[in-house]
Amino acid sequence: MTDLKAGGEPAAAKAGFFDLRWILALLFGVYGTVLTVLGATVTSQADLDRADGVNVNLWVGLGMLLGAAAFAGWARLRPIRLPPAPAGPTAPHRP
């Protein structure tokens, strides 16, 4: 059974799981979570002194989480639509 749009034409399929934006959102989310947790819990004073008083793990982790949210939002709001399959034969007709 094919899905139809309101005008009676077939709906375009979505790329779904293999969209690179979802994969990047997952990777940025995992690494961002790890860096944020490490930056918030196990950063020592020696680490802060080496980074001129900036908690680099925490800030980069938060930035990566924002990047993950941006990729996920982009993929959710603007999914890749595949063109519908042709209805007729794909080879040209030869007499």
Rank of each mutant, 00 (worst) to 15 (best):
Met1Ser: 06
Met1Trp: 05
Met1Phe: 07
Met1Thr: 06
Thr2Ser: 07
Asp3Ala: 14
Lys5His: 12
Ala6Ser: 15
Ala6Gly: 06
Gly7Lys: 14
Gly8Lys: 08
Gly8Ser: 13
Gly8Met: 10
Glu9Met: 14
Glu9Phe: 10
Pro10Leu: 12
Pro10Gly: 13
Ala11Asp: 15
Ala11Ile: 13
Ala13Gly: 15
Ala13Leu: 14
Gly16Met: 12
Gly16Trp: 11
Phe17Leu: 13
Asp19Met: 09
Leu20Asp: 10
Arg21Glu: 00
Arg21Leu: 01
Leu24Tyr: 11
Leu24Asp: 14
Leu26Pro: 00
Leu26Ile: 09
Leu26Arg: 03
Leu26Thr: 06
Leu26Gln: 03
Leu27His: 03
Gly29Ala: 15
Gly29Leu: 12
Val30Asp: 02
Val30Ile: 15
Val30Gln: 04
Tyr31Glu: 10
Thr33Ala: 09
Val34Pro: 04
Leu35Pro: 00
Leu35Glu: 05
Val37Ala: 14
Leu38Trp: 12
Leu38Cys: 08
Leu38Lys: 11
Leu38Tyr: 12
Ala40Thr: 06
Ala40Gly: 08
Thr41Ser: 05
Val42Gly: 06
Thr43Cys: 01
Ser44Gly: 11
Gln45Val: 07
Gln45Lys: 05
Ala46Asn: 11
Asp47Phe: 07
Asp47Thr: 08
Asp47Ile: 03
Leu48Gln: 11
Leu48Ile: 11
Leu48Trp: 14
Asp49Trp: 06
Asp49Phe: 08
Arg50Asn: 15
Ala51Arg: 13
Ala51Ile: 02
Asp52Ala: 09
Asp52Phe: 10
Asp52Trp: 10
Asp52Met: 06
Gly53Met: 09
Gly53Tyr: 10
Val54His: 13
Val54Arg: 12
Val54Glu: 04
Asn55Trp: 02
Val56Cys: 02
Leu58Ile: 04
Leu58Arg: 05
Val60Met: 14
Val60Ser: 13
Val60Pro: 03
Gly61Arg: 01
Gly61Phe: 01
Gly61Ile: 01
Gly61Glu: 00
Leu62Pro: 02
Leu62Cys: 06
Leu62Gly: 10
Leu62Asn: 07
Gly63Trp: 13
Gly63Leu: 15
Met64Gly: 05
Met64Val: 07
Met64Ser: 10
Met64Thr: 06
Leu66Lys: 03
Leu66Ile: 15
Gly67Lys: 04
Gly67Pro: 01
Ala68Arg: 01
Ala68Cys: 08
Ala69Pro: 00
Ala69Asn: 05
Ala69Phe: 11
Ala70Ile: 12
Ala70Met: 11
Phe71Gln: 10
Ala72Lys: 09
Ala72Thr: 08
Ala72Tyr: 14
Trp74Arg: 01
Trp74His: 05
Ala75Val: 03
Ala75Ser: 11
Ala75Cys: 02
Arg76Gln: 09
Arg76Lys: 07
Leu77Asn: 04
Leu77Ser: 07
Pro79Glu: 11
Ile80Phe: 13
Ile80Tyr: 12
Leu82Met: 14
Leu82His: 08
Pro83Arg: 09
Pro83Gly: 08
Ala87Met: 12
Ala87Gly: 15
Ala87Trp: 09
Ala87Asn: 09
Gly88Asp: 13
Gly88Leu: 09
Pro89Arg: 04
Thr90Met: 07
Thr90Gly: 06
Thr90Tyr: 05
Ala91His: 07
Ala91Met: 06
Ala91Ile: 02
Pro92Glu: 05
Pro92Tyr: 00
Arg94Ile: 03
Arg94Cys: 00
Arg94Gln: 06
Pro95Arg: 04
Pro95Met: 00
